[in-house]
Amino acid sequence: MARRGTILACLLLGCGPLTATSAIDDADRALVRARAADSERYAAYETALAELYLAKAREEQGYAQYGEARSLASEAQRFANAASRKVADRGGEPASQSPKRTAVQQR
């Protein structure tokens, strides 16, 4: 019964907010991973684009423009992944590593 209610609510309200939030979260995680691999140093262009698109996605989500927000978040994730790949190609830290880094590592 509860499941039916959820489905009905989704149909009535649309899943826009959920999918946009999910896309934004994914992009955010991808960006964190890229930054952990020092992408701001080795892939500044891609990282900056990812940040800008992610900020814009959040802004659009605030205006309830969920479709646009999801699209921008996807773009942000693509740029973040590109930044990670670029760092990996340079022989830097693998992008899949934990974002936790010590002060010594960051030097």
Binding site: E46, L52, E68
Partner: peptide
Amino acid sequence: AEACAPQELAVAEANLRFAQT
């Protein structure tokens, strides 16, 4: 500019895209 001014280029391109939208 992608190598020389990556931040500036990114800001310009992103905002241009947002403006066009």
